[in-house]
Design a protein around this nucleic acid. Structure first.
Length: 154
DNA sequence: GCCAACGTTGGC
DNA sequence: GCCAACGTTGGC
Protein backbone atom coordinates (compact mmCIF):
# COMPACT_ATOMS: atom_id res chain seq x y z
CA UNK A 1 0.00 0.00 0.00
CA UNK A 2 1.30 3.44 -0.90
CA UNK A 3 1.54 6.40 1.42
CA UNK A 4 -1.66 8.09 2.51
CA UNK A 5 -0.22 11.51 2.86
CA UNK A 6 2.56 13.78 1.67
CA UNK A 7 4.33 16.46 3.67
CA UNK A 8 7.27 18.81 3.71
CA UNK A 9 9.43 19.46 6.75
CA UNK A 10 12.04 22.17 7.11
CA UNK A 11 15.33 21.92 8.88
CA UNK A 12 18.36 24.15 8.97
CA UNK A 13 21.23 21.99 7.74
CA UNK A 14 23.61 23.67 10.20
CA UNK A 15 21.39 22.21 12.92
CA UNK A 16 20.20 18.95 11.37
CA UNK A 17 20.74 18.07 7.71
CA UNK A 18 19.50 15.20 5.60
CA UNK A 19 22.98 13.70 5.95
CA UNK A 20 22.57 13.84 9.71
CA UNK A 21 19.29 11.95 9.30
CA UNK A 22 20.97 9.32 7.10
CA UNK A 23 23.64 8.86 9.79
CA UNK A 24 21.18 8.61 12.68
CA UNK A 25 20.54 5.28 14.44
CA UNK A 26 18.10 3.33 12.27
CA UNK A 27 18.26 6.38 9.97
CA UNK A 28 15.48 7.68 12.20
CA UNK A 29 15.02 10.77 14.32
CA UNK A 30 12.37 12.39 16.49
CA UNK A 31 11.20 15.68 15.04
CA UNK A 32 11.39 17.56 18.32
CA UNK A 33 11.16 21.26 18.93
CA UNK A 34 8.14 22.23 16.86
CA UNK A 35 6.38 25.05 18.73
CA UNK A 36 3.79 26.16 16.26
CA UNK A 37 0.19 25.00 16.54
CA UNK A 38 -0.44 24.62 12.84
CA UNK A 39 2.72 22.58 12.37
CA UNK A 40 1.83 20.47 15.40
CA UNK A 41 -1.64 19.80 14.07
CA UNK A 42 -0.21 18.63 10.77
CA UNK A 43 2.07 16.22 12.61
CA UNK A 44 -0.93 14.91 14.54
CA UNK A 45 -2.66 14.08 11.29
CA UNK A 46 0.29 12.13 9.86
CA UNK A 47 0.03 8.37 9.32
CA UNK A 48 2.70 5.68 9.35
CA UNK A 49 4.21 5.47 5.89
CA UNK A 50 3.39 9.05 4.92
CA UNK A 51 6.22 10.54 2.91
CA UNK A 52 8.08 13.72 3.69
CA UNK A 53 10.07 16.11 1.54
CA UNK A 54 13.15 17.15 3.48
CA UNK A 55 13.82 20.86 3.01
CA UNK A 56 16.95 22.74 3.96
CA UNK A 57 16.01 26.22 5.17
CA UNK A 58 18.44 29.01 5.96
CA UNK A 59 20.76 27.22 3.59
CA UNK A 60 22.80 28.19 0.57
CA UNK A 61 20.84 27.54 -1.49
CA UNK A 62 17.57 26.69 0.26
CA UNK A 63 16.34 23.46 -1.35
CA UNK A 64 14.40 20.23 -1.14
CA UNK A 65 17.11 17.62 -0.79
CA UNK A 66 15.43 14.24 -0.32
CA UNK A 67 12.69 12.09 1.15
CA UNK A 68 11.88 10.60 4.53
CA UNK A 69 8.91 8.65 5.83
CA UNK A 70 6.84 8.78 8.98
CA UNK A 71 7.61 5.78 11.20
CA UNK A 72 5.99 6.81 14.48
CA UNK A 73 2.72 8.62 15.07
CA UNK A 74 2.55 11.87 17.00
CA UNK A 75 3.53 11.61 20.68
CA UNK A 76 4.46 14.16 23.34
CA UNK A 77 7.75 15.95 22.71
CA UNK A 78 9.82 15.43 25.89
CA UNK A 79 11.82 18.62 25.36
CA UNK A 80 8.78 20.68 26.35
CA UNK A 81 9.26 19.50 29.96
CA UNK A 82 13.03 19.89 30.06
CA UNK A 83 13.99 23.17 31.75
CA UNK A 84 17.44 23.00 30.22
CA UNK A 85 16.14 22.61 26.69
CA UNK A 86 15.84 25.49 24.30
CA UNK A 87 12.27 24.42 23.56
CA UNK A 88 11.16 24.17 27.21
CA UNK A 89 7.57 25.29 27.68
CA UNK A 90 6.72 26.10 31.30
CA UNK A 91 3.04 26.31 30.40
CA UNK A 92 2.85 22.71 29.24
CA UNK A 93 2.06 20.07 31.87
CA UNK A 94 2.82 16.34 31.54
CA UNK A 95 -0.83 15.65 32.30
CA UNK A 96 -1.78 17.73 29.26
CA UNK A 97 1.17 17.95 26.89
CA UNK A 98 0.91 20.80 24.47
CA UNK A 99 3.55 19.79 21.90
CA UNK A 100 3.85 16.62 19.88
CA UNK A 101 6.45 15.18 17.55
CA UNK A 102 6.69 12.31 15.08
CA UNK A 103 9.61 10.08 14.13
CA UNK A 104 10.81 10.12 10.56
CA UNK A 105 13.19 7.79 8.74
CA UNK A 106 15.59 8.56 5.90
CA UNK A 107 14.52 7.12 2.57
CA UNK A 108 16.74 8.78 0.00
CA UNK A 109 18.61 11.86 -0.99
CA UNK A 110 17.86 13.34 -4.39
CA UNK A 111 20.59 13.09 -7.03
CA UNK A 112 20.46 16.86 -7.07
CA UNK A 113 18.95 19.44 -4.73
CA UNK A 114 15.80 21.15 -5.96
CA UNK A 115 16.51 24.76 -5.13
CA UNK A 116 13.90 27.26 -4.07
CA UNK A 117 14.74 29.28 -7.18
CA UNK A 118 14.04 26.30 -9.42
CA UNK A 119 10.81 25.41 -7.64
CA UNK A 120 9.55 28.97 -8.06
CA UNK A 121 9.94 28.60 -11.83
CA UNK A 122 7.53 25.66 -11.90
CA UNK A 123 4.02 26.75 -12.80
CA UNK A 124 2.64 23.43 -11.53
CA UNK A 125 3.93 24.27 -8.08
CA UNK A 126 2.53 27.76 -7.94
CA UNK A 127 0.11 26.81 -5.15
CA UNK A 128 2.67 25.13 -2.91
CA UNK A 129 2.59 26.31 0.70
CA UNK A 130 6.38 26.50 0.63
CA UNK A 131 6.32 29.03 -2.19
CA UNK A 132 3.72 31.35 -0.73
CA UNK A 133 5.12 34.72 0.19
CA UNK A 134 6.05 34.94 3.83
CA UNK A 135 5.34 31.26 4.44
CA UNK A 136 7.21 30.14 7.55
CA UNK A 137 5.35 26.96 8.38
CA UNK A 138 7.94 24.30 9.22
CA UNK A 139 5.60 21.34 8.70
CA UNK A 140 3.28 21.57 5.73
CA UNK A 141 1.06 19.40 3.55
CA UNK A 142 1.97 18.62 -0.06
CA UNK A 143 -0.68 17.62 -2.59
CA UNK A 144 -0.29 14.37 -4.57
CA UNK A 145 0.07 16.46 -7.74
CA UNK A 146 2.79 18.60 -6.24
CA UNK A 147 4.49 15.47 -4.94
CA UNK A 148 4.51 13.77 -8.33
CA UNK A 149 5.85 16.84 -10.03
CA UNK A 150 8.66 17.29 -7.51
CA UNK A 151 9.65 13.63 -7.81
CA UNK A 152 9.73 13.98 -11.59
CA UNK A 153 12.03 17.00 -11.28
CA UNK A 154 14.35 15.11 -8.97
C1' DG B 1 23.54 40.92 9.38
C1' DC B 2 19.18 42.89 7.68
C1' DC B 3 14.50 42.98 7.71
C1' DA B 4 9.71 41.64 6.03
C1' DA B 5 6.29 38.58 7.32
C1' DC B 6 4.23 36.04 10.62
C1' DG B 7 2.50 34.11 15.32
C1' DT B 8 1.81 35.02 20.10
C1' DT B 9 1.05 37.71 24.17
C1' DG B 10 -1.16 40.81 27.04
C1' DG B 11 -3.05 45.48 28.18
C1' DC B 12 -7.10 47.77 27.49
C1' DG C 1 -12.09 41.75 20.44
C1' DC C 2 -8.52 44.97 19.10
C1' DC C 3 -3.93 45.89 18.33
C1' DA C 4 0.87 47.27 19.79
C1' DA C 5 4.89 45.07 21.19
C1' DC C 6 7.73 41.42 20.94
C1' DG C 7 10.12 37.16 19.35
C1' DT C 8 11.00 34.13 15.53
C1' DT C 9 11.59 32.50 10.78
C1' DG C 10 14.04 32.39 6.77
C1' DG C 11 15.29 34.52 2.21
C1' DC C 12 18.55 37.55 0.73
Amino acid sequence: MGPKGYWLMKSEPSTFSIDDLARSPNKTTGWEGVRNYQARNFMRSMAIGDQVLFYHSNADPPAIVGIAEVVKLAYPDPTQFDKKDKHYDPESKPSAPRWDMVDIKYLRKFARALTLDELQEESKLRGMVLLKKGSRLSVQPVTPMEWRHIISLA
